[in-house]
Deep mutational scan, measured.
Amino acid sequence: GIPATNLSRVAGLEKQLAIELKVKQGAENMIQTYSNGSTKDRKLLLTAQQMLQDSKTKIDIIRMQLRRALQ
């Protein structure tokens, strides 16, 4: 079985993952909103794209940590 310490770690990672998935969803929504907007929305679009990139990276890292914890 999986050690108890790993189980609480997994629960924490799953919570983090859920949050990051919401951030990713929000960033994707912002990108959709701003991509057909005016030029003043360009900065917001770039910010949203950066957020999305960061979020995807975090999600990958969390998933990797989850896999390790579940081994």
Rank of each mutant, 00 (worst) to 15 (best):
V23H: 07
M51N: 03
S8T: 09
A18Y: 07
L13A: 00
R67E: 06
Q49S: 03
L46Q: 10
N6E: 11
Q16G: 02
L44D: 04
A48W: 10
L17S: 00
D60Q: 13
L21M: 11
Y34K: 02
M30Y: 03
T39R: 05
A4K: 13
L66R: 01
Q25C: 10
M64D: 12
T33D: 13
I2R: 08
E14P: 01
R9I: 14
L7D: 11
M51H: 04
R67D: 06
M51R: 05
L66S: 00
L44Q: 07
Q53L: 07
K58I: 04
Q32K: 15
Q53K: 12
I59W: 01
L21Y: 06
T57E: 12
T5K: 09
Q53E: 12
P3A: 08
S35D: 07
Q49L: 14
N29C: 15
E14F: 15
S55N: 01
V10C: 12
Q53A: 12
L46E: 13
V10S: 02
T33K: 15
A69N: 03
K40T: 10
S35W: 09
R68F: 11
I62E: 00
T57K: 10
K43P: 06
K22P: 00
S55T: 09
A48G: 02
V23F: 10
M30A: 07
L70Q: 07
R42V: 13
G12F: 15
Q65G: 02
I2W: 14
I61N: 09
Q16W: 06
E14D: 02
D41I: 02
K58R: 13
D60N: 13
P3F: 05
G12C: 15
L7I: 09
T5I: 11
T39Y: 09
K58G: 01
R67S: 07
Q53F: 07
M64P: 13
L46F: 06
I2K: 11
I62K: 00
L52T: 01
G12Y: 15
K40C: 14
G26N: 15
E20T: 05
I19T: 07
M30S: 03
I19A: 13
Q50V: 06
D60Y: 14
D54L: 07
D54M: 07
G12Q: 15
I31L: 05
G12N: 14
Q65D: 04
V23S: 04
D54T: 09
K40A: 13
K43N: 11
T5F: 12
E14L: 15
L7M: 12
Q25R: 09
M30H: 03
T39F: 08
N36S: 14
D54I: 08
T5L: 12
T57N: 10
I62Q: 00
E20A: 08
R42G: 09
T57L: 11
Y34S: 03
Q65I: 05
I59G: 00
K43V: 12
R9W: 13
V10F: 03
Q71N: 08
L45V: 04
I2Q: 11
E28D: 02
A4R: 07
I31F: 02
A4W: 02
